[in-house]
Nucleic acid binder design. Structure first.
Length: 613
DNA sequence: CCTGGGC
């Protein structure tokens, strides 16, 4: 039998909200509601209800599990005006949805995310500086975009064209976003149209905003937008998953800026950190949950989170989330945890690379989706200079030292430019870091054997320039937005070319230039061919010896077998339907300034989008 | 072989 202590904690959002941050939640007899009295009354528990029972909107076909009492009630009538007014500009910061529990008074106490200068992941701070000093938007002008699927909504050219509402527009201005990036121009209208989306675009090109704005805007407009909980179980409306803790933190910090003063509450949950604080944060209410898979499963098994109300699901770095290591966990979360089915919820997958097998897997989670490919801004254009050097295993350390020495001498005032060094193993990371420190190069390291505290400290120390060299495993390969990384060194090359693409994408961000150096030797033969091809596509100088290895090497190092061109992937439905590895980029439109929309849906009837459905 | 992720 469960203790009354456990049951009695927190049945009221209002009560939770007044708890002192630092004091433990204390059981209060008066808040205890016996389970048999709870049903049908979540609205009572979660705040004032003024409307009558509005039609429940998430009538999802969620596998017979839907308890009627869990459907959000009320607000149907009053909302339409309240919500829309808020979205359409209810006067300054005032007009939020005050029909969500704890609504506007919570907003008053909301920490201004734009005022925090020393936050670890305060990436937009830097981004905005760059924008002010003239972000290299030209770099974005000339890239090809392809979209396929049924009824693709047209792209927009300005944020003003998108009806996100005055509050979100203010946050866009606070972020100093002048105009949408290509992935935003195309993805946001698709997402706002309620379509499922698989989007392929380089990180650093604004993907986070591309899925956050539609989710926040959607939640603001929902008719049933009453934040609910039953007992200690909370029901987020949006779920954003990412493969690493740091990336989840980063997304959370961005999402908090985008949702400032909207009344939409964003909470993050990830492993390696004490769970109690995260639990308390969840109890105070959550609309959008950003999480890593492991911790989320934990929360689901403890019944502290239910996915039954999820309307929006976004997977960042989706190809990673669906590869061998993660896929079972993701499948469990998406398919076996009471989440509304595809087609009922809206699903958005984002990544810089989309191998075809992954697309095939992903189609299990999507319903009649639109595939969007935005040409790479970074790795395969001139923004990143890629170099490959032949370095024997035994020479790697001294060679790295030479590079670092030269870099220091050429740098400003003898300062070391931020250099990110990728190695293959955790042990290798530790030992290289130690060696660098011993040789006068202040370094730190980030990998999965370090505690979360150490990982965060390392990242902060690197960003601040205190230790301008960061030795990392692939934990840092994806998504992390570290401004001003001048040089990425592939001390050990990865086995997969897509990992290489993600790694070098840590430099040359937001339209800036960067340098990527790789140490190649006989243990990297399988990468010779895809690497040579990638560099050639990017108009990089390919050393003769690499071409030689490439010509002898078998195919390898590539799960994707990319069909050439400037994208990180292409719509597998199209390729499969034609039955060939179709290179449709090498034709007319990859080189010119074509920015329009190409609907290459090419004769799919509804419901026959692919052979895997 | 390696990496990521819950106590």
């Amino acid at each position: 039998m469960r203790t009354s202590w456990a049951d009695s904690v927190s049945n009221s959002a209002a009560e939770i909200a007044i708890w002192d941050k630092n004091s433990l939640p204390r059981p209060t007899r008066s808040t205890y509601v016996p389970p048999h009295l709870r049903s049908g009354s979540i609205s009572d528990l979660s705040g004032p209800v003024t409307g009558t029972n509005g039609g429940s909107r998430w009538t999802g076909s969620d596998g017979g599990g839907t308890k009627p009492e869990l459907r959000r009630q009320g607000q149907a009538n009053s909302y339409a005006t309240a919500g829309r007014d808020a979205a359409a500009g209810g006067g300054g910061g005032g007009g939020g949805r005050n029909n969500r529990s704890g609504g506007w008074d919570r907003r008053e106490r909301e920490v201004n995310p734009f005022g925090n200068d020393d936050k670890i992941y305060d990436i937009k701070q830097n981004f905005s500086e760059q924008e002010n000093s003239g972000i290299n938007f030209d770099a974005y002008e000339d890239i090809p975009v392809e979209a396929s699927g049924e009824n693709v909504p047209p792209p927009v050219n300005t944020f003003a064209e998108i009806d996100l509402g005055e509050i979100l527009n203010q946050n866009i201005r606070r972020c100093k976003y002048v105009k949408p990036t290509p992935v935003q121009r195309h993805a946001i209208p698709i997402a706002l149209a309620g379509k499922d989306l698989m989007a392929c675009a380089q990180t650093g090109s604004g993907k986070t905003a591309a899925f956050c704005f539609p989710i926040i805007s959607g939640i603001m407009r929902e008719l049933y937008a009453q934040r609910s909980h039953v007992g200690r179980t909370v029901y987020p409306l949006g779920l954003i998953l990412s493969p690493t803790r740091e990336l989840s933190c980063q997304i959370h910090d961005e999402a908090k800026k985008f949702s400032y003063q909207t009344g939409v509450k964003v909470v993050v949950a990830y492993g390696g950190a004490p769970i109690n604080q995260q639990l308390r944060e969840l109890e105070r209410g959550v609309d959008i949950l950003v999480a890593t898979p492991g911790r989320l499963v934990d929360l689901l098994e403890r019944a502290r989170v239910s996915l039954q109300a999820v309307r929006y699901l976004a997977l960042d770095e989706a190809d990673r989330m669906l590869d061998m290591g993660f896929e079972p966990q993701i499948r469990k979360i998406v398919e076996q945890m009471n989440m509304p089915n595809r087609g009922v919820r809206q699903t958005m997958l984002f990544s810089a690379t989309f191998p075809r097998e992954i697309q095939r897997l992903a189609s299990d989670f999507l319903s009649n989706h639109i595939f969007l490919a935005v040409g790479r801004v970074g790795p395969s254009t001139d923004l990143i200079v890629q170099r490959v050097e032949f370095v024997l295993e035994s020479d790697k350390r001294s060679h790295l030292m030479d590079l670092l020495h030269a870099q220091r001498e050429n740098g400003n005032h003898g300062k070391q430019a931020l250099t990110l060094v990728f190695v293959e193993t955790k042990k290798g990371a530790d030992s290289l870091e130690h060696w660098l420190c011993m040789n006068g190069f202040p370094s730190t390291t980030i990998h999965g054997d370090r505690t979360q505290q150490e990982r965060e400290l390392a990242l902060r120390s690197f960003k601040s320039g205190k230790t301008p060299i960061l030795v990392a495993t692939d934990v840092a390969a994806r998504g992390l937005d570290i401004p001003h990384v001048a040089h990425v060194v592939n001390f050990d090359l990865p086995n997969d070319i897509d990992d290489y693409v993600h790694r070098i994408g840590r430099t040359g961000r937001a339209g800036k230039t960067g340098l990527a150096t790789a140490f190649f030797n006989e243990s990297n033969l399988s990468l010779a061919r895809p690497l040579a091809e990638l560099m050639q596509e990017a108009s990089q100088e390919v050393p003769a010896w690499l071409t030689h290895y490439a010509s002898r090497a078998p195919y390898g190092g590539n799960k994707n077998r990319r069909s050439g061109g400037r994208f990180g992937g292409s719509d597998f439905r199209r390729e499969e339907s034609i039955g060939k590895n179709l290179d449709y980029y090498s034709g007319g439109n990859s080189g010119n300034a074509y920015e329009g929309l190409v609907d290459i849906a090419g004769g799919y009837a509804p419901g026959v989008t692919s052979a895997w459905d």
